[in-house]
Design a protein around this nucleic acid. Structure first.
Lengths: 192, 192, 192, 192
DNA sequence: TATGAATGAGTGTTCATTCAT
DNA sequence: AATGAATGAACACTCATTCAT
């Protein structure tokens, strides 16, 4: 029932996601995608201009998912002090990553495949909201004066590593609390 | 004459490395490698069992290069206090990365191609020397009690990001000193 | 409003013609045609049995256009001496070709695609009017006794070449008068 | 025996030629070529960079064949009067065409496929030998002052048509002598 | 009349790998 | 040790055509 509601676009994107997660982005081929989606290979081109567009769409879907999950308003709410806004942001990344561990891996894989070096760091535009937040924090001498991708990087890579560790059963979800992870990240970022 | 001393193995590996760095690991093909190495395509199989072995060898070569550059003795020298040994280690990674920026990218690319998730974190064996060092530091409550790949991860990913930023001309080499980078990493690791 | 009077058939044919002239007959595909005609791809099959029928129709449309432009009555008018009737015919081909240079190219392209060797020579039926005229001229020893497609061929290919030379800016329209072109053709045909 | 001497290049080119002549240039596909040449499809790319290179090579092979058959020295021999040199040239084209009727068709087909409009007119370079000859004839007021491709065109297209008529059994080889064909062509060209 | 969805067969091209010499 | 030739499988992508709605 529910499945039938999904349109083909989504089915195809899901197939791509599955392949990326199980075999790696390199292994994505229209043939495999079509097989997994139970359609003819040529059919892929009915829904996506070409392979690049297909990968882009999967990437964007995931990126949007993240962005939509983020409580942007709060990040801009100047009634909250900046340190807490950053903490709130990290918490959101943390929650998102634990809830959707695949999402992060998808984004990482696709970005890498396309030759972008920044890994998980998502920065749509320079005046991106998080960018803004971190810049403000830097200007106010709350966090260290460093390239912004250092700050974004440590947030993402730490949380991502944590999530992967759990997935790979290196330890259980309960073994490290958010507070612990957060402290690690925040100690790096903040001026003390 | 001297050049001719380089055996074919090395010539081939160099070709692979060059392709990876310029076009990405995905683009490595025996055809291209052979062309770049000025040998017949089939010749690649004289020196390497298959493509996988070839990539492995390039990976291992780089990994060994890193390990050999590291002053292991010093890391084990208990006359030096542990904090300084870690600092020394970070310094060595830092120096290596700035001196051989390609090396890190090679490792990252090959790891990605093979579907390994840990990125740059190299851990050959559990009783690896760095592993040992960090474990000791954790036991002595010098660094935070966290999965070891957190500690290794922040070292590598921060330094790697820094190196890439420089390569991509985001800023000049002189803009951030080692001390600054180190402080960022160390603040995350240490218990304060 | 008026434009809407053009029925879909015509719109589709026009699309085909445009593609042939800009990209060559080989490049005609239902996909492209449909896109250019602003209809669904499958819609092409509503108006034409298959691709072959579509091409045929475009060919026939052009052939009819030529035939209808030709003043047949005059060609048969025995009050005019035969030499002048042939001259009149050549003049008409000349005028048509210069006025509708695309027309000739369309016919040539489609013929090529269908593997017909006679190029521009259009001969619907053996008792074709021009056929008749030339036969009569041959019988009356006005033109050389040669296969009829020699005579038709030289008319078409010379004029077509002239037209293309102009289109390709090899020289301007005014550089060679009809009389000059005609003399070239007629000298070949006539018995002297 | 003899067949074995032919290298694969030639075998492949022959396959292409056969397909062009039987099915038309449009029908040439690497698959068909490979099948006809009894090799794997991928093998085509061992001998030719891509399909274009393959077609080019078939074209060039034929063009060279024509050029090598032509007695260039004689065409430049100013001891012979120009009219006779042109006649000699036309005779050579005539002989070649009748001896190698396929050759002309191959060239025509490939040229058309590549979108060149000049049909059989082969003009390698502006100072091409035939070009030279005709220009000289025009300057000396032996032939009409017209675009050179008119003169070349009538030679080729007339002879080609004649050859095709014979192939298609429209009449027998003996029905029209060279002299007849020549007269038709020459009357068009010459100033009278 | 019109369309979107579907598809199988085909396209040119690249690949890793094998083998005879 | 070295090579050129060979190949089957895979790739992304386009095509003419059909069919249910």
């Amino acid at each position: 029932m529910k499945k039938k509601d999904m349109n083909k676009q989504t089915i195809i994107q899901d197939a791509v996601a599955k392949i990326i997660l199980t075999e790696g982005a390199v292994s994505v081929s229209t043939t495999k995608v079509a097989k997994l989606a139970h359609i003819a290979q040529s059919n892929v081109y009915l829904y996506f201009k070409d392979k690049q567009a297909l990968l882009d769409s999967v990437y964007n879907r995931e990126r949007d998912r993240i962005i939509n999950t983020t409580d942007i308003a709060e990040l801009r709410n100047h009634d909250i002090d900046i340190e807490n806004r950053i903490r709130y942001y990290i918490e959101q990344v943390y929650d998102y990553s634990l809830t959707n561990p695949d999402s992060m891996n998808l984004i990482e894989q696709i970005k890498f495949l396309m030759g972008e070096d920044d890994g998980l760091v998502i920065s749509d535009s320079p005046n991106d909201i998080v960018h803004e937040l971190l810049q403000e924090a830097m200007d106010n001498q709350v966090i260290k004066k460093l390239p912004i991708n250092f700050h974004m990087g440590i947030v993402f890579s730490t949380i991502h590593r944590h999530t992967n560790n759990i997935i790979e059963n290196k330890y259980s979800k309960s073994e490290y609390k958010f507070e612990t992870i957060y402290q690690f990240i925040w100690d790096a970022m903040r001026i003390n």
